[in-house]
Each structure stands twice: as C-alpha cells, then as structure tokens.
C-alpha cells in the first residue's frame, strides 16, 4: 500500500522539484510560496510540476475541481493534498 507518511511524501515532492529547480528546491522552506521562492516558477513550470507529481504518485489531478493553485502553491500544501488523495484511494 502507498505510504501516507507526510514526511515521506514531503521528501518525494521535494525530489520532484529538485529535478527542475536544483539547489533552490533543496533549500525550499515547506511553507514557502513556490512562485516566489523558485526562480522561473511560472504557469508553464507550475503545469510541469503538477504533471510530475501526478506521475510520481500515480494520481490524476482535477484542474478545475481540486483548487490546484492552492494545493500546489507550497510544498506543505502539496504533501497534504497528496496524503488525502492516497488515503481516498486506499479507502
């Protein structure tokens, strides 16, 4: 069963960001706004981020119903969103 441990989810999301943003993602505070903290985090990068998270966790995000601009705006929020999705899938 996929883990719902928030720390592990956090680490996997950070790894996703590191692949694109390198050192800036490694030093990222969990509650930092990605658009402010990561140089070049524009709408295209945001889309790539969501797609990479989908691929990493095997989920499909609903871009209209899921309030993606909130849940994918910080590392913390993304991890929380993913834990809920994983728990929903397991239920």
């Amino acid at each position: 069963m996929p883990t719902t441990d928030l720390t592990q989810i956090h680490d996997r999301v950070r790894t996703v960001l590191e692949k694109r943003f390198g050192d800036a993602a490694r030093a990222l505070a969990p509650d930092a706004e990605l658009s402010a903290a990561l140089p070049g985090f524009d709408s295209l990068a945001a889309l790539e981020y969501v797609s990479a998270v989908e691929s990493e966790f095997g989920i499909e995000v609903d871009f209209v119903a899921d309030d993606v601009r909130y849940w994918f705006s910080t590392l913390d929020r993304t991890a929380t969103y993913l834990r809920e999705r994983i728990e929903d899938q397991a239920a």
């Binding site: 889309l47 871009f63 119903a65």
Partner: peptide, 21 residues
C-alpha cells in the same frame, strides 16, 4: 461558469489557467 470560478482571482481579475493565483 465552473471554469471561470477556477480562474477568477482575489483581485477581481482572471488567471490564464487554474494553476495561477
């Protein structure tokens, strides 16, 4: 209407996609 709700921003504007705040 559902789409417009997803791109409407707090400053009464509109984002290009639901990803942007």
């Amino acid at each position: 209407a559902a789409f417009l709700d997803s791109v409407r921003t707090a400053d009464a504007g509109f984002a290009w996609t639901p990803l942007m705040a």
